[in-house]
Design a protein around this nucleic acid. Sequence first.
DNA 1: TTGCGTGCAAAGGTTTTGCATGGCA
DNA 2: TGCCATGCAAAACCTTTGCACGCAA
Lengths: 143, 143
Amino acid sequence: MNHSEGYKTKQRMAILEFLKRNENAHVTAAMISDHLDQTGTHVGVATIYRHLDRLLESGEVRKYTVDGTTSACYQYARLDGQCREHFHLKCEKCGRLIHLECSHAMQTFDHLLEDHGFAVDLYRTVFYGQCRECREQEGAEEE
Amino acid sequence: MNHSEGYKTKQRMAILEFLKRNENAHVTAAMISDHLDQTGTHVGVATIYRHLDRLLESGEVRKYTVDGTTSACYQYARLDGQCREHFHLKCEKCGRLIHLECSHAMQTFDHLLEDHGFAVDLYRTVFYGQCRECREQEGAEEE
DNA sequence: TTGCGTGCAAAGGTTTTGCATGGCA
DNA sequence: TGCCATGCAAAACCTTTGCACGCAA
């Protein structure tokens, strides 16, 4: 669960640090590779993919496929397990991931289960759309 | 919008027919290719991808990335425009796409917009989980 | 010292592109 | 007849794998 197994190599630390710092952005394997190159800490792509796989299994990152992109996107996820207890909103414009603590939405979750027989996978389900900030910005641009 | 532009070739018809007949299943480009080969109507993969792209743009098909799979999945979508007015549930087990006509869920949609400022993209948002039938079947298997 | 981690290069798979040919309108 | 559509093969991509070497514990 907590990915504590394994060696604490500088490559692993560098990858993890980058993921954490970009908690609210789409991150691809290529982006990690590029960033590390620029920072002077070159890490082979194979190593990056191997770590992402492990982080995925341990639940430390989520994996997305964003719109038109062909490559997978990863995002650091909270480890406290709360992410299986609430929905997530993802802004299609800025890429921000919002952890939605909302009883109204959870009522819908219960309703779907009880009245439709459908058990929603909270971890996997993501509401795509546009967040308040991006909508306001959009409105301002259209003057 | 309605993809009526373009020639009515037998390749395009064959692809579209297969997609429609498998409205409730995950369909990959490879599956289309295989099926058409077996039916005796060989169609080059390039043609298949080109049509899928066009159908995607016109909104006639949706594109998914299913869990462990590496290739994209496509699914025929209704054309009547109603799909922008309700949520969708997707069973992770049987692949069925459920068009959810549910006022409770739509209340949540309104709530997210009014109280959280988040405009959900109904067409893109999909609730992943398990449908009633698959859950019952699962329960029966565990005897 | 032991065995996991890493880098490189090659392999594997999916999707896209270029170009000559074929076929709808 | 004029274009768009198609097929093939090559290219472009992303991701995985094999293997020898390096390094954390």
